[in-house]
């Protein structure tokens, strides 16, 4: 080991202050262009054909299963279940994480943003095919549904310009193409997502197709909708 003799040289106030990289932990505004319907239609048309077998390998080897569960059924309330969701929704979500358009801030999206960086469009389509093939277990049905929530789901609320949830997400919450399935979804994740739309932290929806309906929902309604969808069976 060399002796290290250091000159106690005078430093003339060379105090170096580093600016904290606030965006690492704070909410960084997405620099990516939001979706237009036309752009999404073109993207969906160009979506590669997915291979569920390859998707299964990726799911296992790229740490996806750590949070989303062995068969796409989340073992924790923090991560969404992906089993049985629509391939278009999974594909678009992965694209949005890779581009940074989906970034709810406060570090919440950082793992997914990092995880999608090495993925090609083919990888994403493969994962989408794998998750679409998995089956979400039928949850225990609710004893009774609050008539107001039932009405919100099936009729919407014209006075607040809220479209019925079921008109896009399906009568059984089964989803439709790019609109995700909600039935059986982790309630905690559902609530978090709705608040992210409501407070503007999530803006990867096409033409604010989702967020506009959350602006006037109350916290109690969001909680009740989360419970409703968590206990809904996709195939009654």
């Amino acid at each position: 080991m060399n002796k290290i003799a250091l000159l106690g040289a005078l430093t003339l106030g060379a105090t170096l202050s580093l600016s904290a990289t606030a965006s690492e932990h704070g909410h960084a505004a997405a620099k990516v262009e939001p979706w237009t319907l036309q752009h999404w239609d073109e993207t969906a048309a160009a979506m590669p054909k997915g291979d569920a077998m390859r998707g299964s390998e990726l799911h296992k080897n790229s740490m996806c299963m750590t949070c989303h569960g062995e068969n796409g059924v989340a073992p924790s309330r923090n991560a969404p279940s992906l089993a049985g969701n629509t391939p278009e929704f999974i594909y678009k979500t992965l694209l949005d994480y890779r581009s940074g358009l989906r970034n709810e801030g406060d570090g919440k999206s950082s793992v997914m943003i990092a995880a999608t960086q090495p993925m090609s469009n083919q990888h994403m389509a493969d994962l989408a095919a794998f998750y679409a093939q998995q089956v979400i277990p039928a949850p225990a049905a609710m004893a009774s549904v609050d008539p107001q929530i039932d009405r919100l789901v099936r009729k919407g609320d014209a006075s607040r310009m809220i479209t019925p949830c079921a008109s896009c997400h399906g009568a059984h919450g089964e989803g439709n193409e790019v609109t995700p399935a909600l039935a059986g979804q982790t309630a905690h994740y559902f609530v978090r997502t709705m608040h992210a739309y409501k407070n503007g932290h999530r803006n990867n929806d096409i033409n604010e197709g989702m967020s506009q309906f959350t602006h006037d929902l109350t916290d109690a309604e969001i909680d009740a909708l989360a419970q409703y969808y968590a206990s809904l069976n996709r195939k009654p």
């Binding site: 690492e24 740490m63 570090g107 950082s110 793992v111 943003i113 990092a114 995880a115 960086q117 090495p118």
Partner: peptide, 12 residues
Amino acid sequence: YTNRIRAEVAKN
């Protein structure tokens, strides 16, 4: 990518 994902998991 793997090294970065591990760092993001650490921060998470």
